[in-house]
Amino acid sequence: MSAKILVVDDDPAIRDILVRILQRENYTPITATNGLEALDKVVHESPDLILLDVTMPILDGFEVCRRLKDNERTALIPVTMLTGLDDREHRRRGVEVGADDFLTKPIEQSLLRARLRSQLRIKRLTDQLDRTESVIFMLALAVEAKDAYTEGHLRRLSSYSEQLALAANLDQHQVKAIRLGGLLHDIGKISIDDAILGKPSQLTEEEYNHIKRHPEEGARIVAPMRFASEVGPIIRHHHERWDGSGYPDGLRGEDIPIGARIVAIVDAYDAMMTDRPYRKSLGLEEALRRLRAGRGREWDPDLLDLFIRLIEDGRLIEPESEDSRSRLERQL
Score class of each variant (00 low, 15 high):
residue 150 T to F: 03
residue 128 Q to K: 11
residue 112 L to N: 02
residue 136 I to S: 02
residue 119 Q to R: 13
residue 142 A to N: 10
residue 113 R to G: 05
residue 136 I to T: 09
residue 112 L to W: 02
residue 136 I to M: 12
residue 115 R to C: 01
residue 114 A to I: 08
residue 149 Y to E: 04
residue 115 R to S: 06
residue 148 A to D: 09
residue 119 Q to T: 09
residue 132 T to E: 14
residue 123 K to N: 08
residue 142 A to L: 08
residue 137 F to K: 10
residue 128 Q to G: 09
residue 126 T to E: 03
residue 150 T to M: 04
residue 109 Q to L: 12
residue 139 L to F: 04
residue 141 L to E: 13
residue 139 L to P: 00
residue 109 Q to K: 12
residue 152 G to N: 01
residue 144 E to V: 02
residue 149 Y to K: 07
residue 126 T to V: 11
residue 115 R to W: 06
residue 150 T to R: 06
residue 132 T to N: 14
residue 144 E to N: 05
residue 146 K to Q: 05
residue 138 M to K: 15
residue 142 A to K: 10
residue 124 R to H: 11
residue 113 R to E: 12
residue 111 L to I: 15
residue 123 K to F: 11
residue 143 V to N: 03
residue 148 A to G: 03
residue 140 A to E: 12
residue 119 Q to K: 09
residue 154 L to Y: 02
residue 135 V to Y: 10
residue 151 E to K: 08
residue 123 K to V: 10
residue 128 Q to H: 07
residue 111 L to W: 08
residue 142 A to Q: 14
residue 147 D to A: 07
residue 145 A to N: 14
residue 116 L to A: 04
residue 150 T to P: 01
residue 134 S to K: 04
residue 152 G to P: 00
residue 119 Q to C: 08
residue 125 L to H: 07
residue 133 E to P: 06
residue 137 F to P: 04
residue 138 M to H: 14
residue 148 A to M: 07
residue 110 S to R: 12
residue 146 K to R: 09
residue 133 E to W: 09
residue 143 V to Y: 01
residue 151 E to M: 06
residue 114 A to H: 10
residue 115 R to D: 04
residue 131 R to E: 15
residue 141 L to T: 13
residue 147 D to C: 05
residue 138 M to G: 13
residue 111 L to G: 05
residue 139 L to G: 07
residue 143 V to A: 04
residue 148 A to W: 04
residue 111 L to Y: 12
residue 117 R to K: 15
residue 143 V to S: 02
residue 150 T to G: 00
residue 134 S to Q: 07
residue 131 R to A: 11
residue 151 E to T: 06
residue 153 H to A: 00
residue 142 A to H: 13
residue 126 T to F: 02
residue 124 R to G: 09
residue 117 R to W: 10
residue 146 K to G: 01
residue 125 L to R: 13
residue 148 A to T: 08
residue 123 K to T: 11
residue 125 L to K: 10
residue 132 T to P: 03
residue 110 S to E: 15
residue 136 I to Q: 05
residue 116 L to M: 02
residue 121 R to E: 15
residue 133 E to K: 12
residue 134 S to M: 07
residue 133 E to R: 07
residue 154 L to N: 03
residue 111 L to R: 15
residue 147 D to T: 03
residue 152 G to H: 01
residue 142 A to I: 04
residue 151 E to N: 08
residue 115 R to Q: 05
residue 130 D to Y: 00
residue 132 T to V: 15
residue 144 E to S: 02
residue 139 L to W: 06
residue 138 M to C: 15
residue 145 A to G: 06
residue 128 Q to D: 08
residue 152 G to K: 00
residue 110 S to I: 11
residue 121 R to G: 07
residue 139 L to M: 09
residue 135 V to C: 03
residue 109 Q to G: 02
residue 145 A to Q: 13
residue 123 K to A: 12
residue 152 G to W: 00
residue 127 D to A: 06
residue 127 D to S: 07
residue 147 D to E: 08
residue 136 I to K: 02
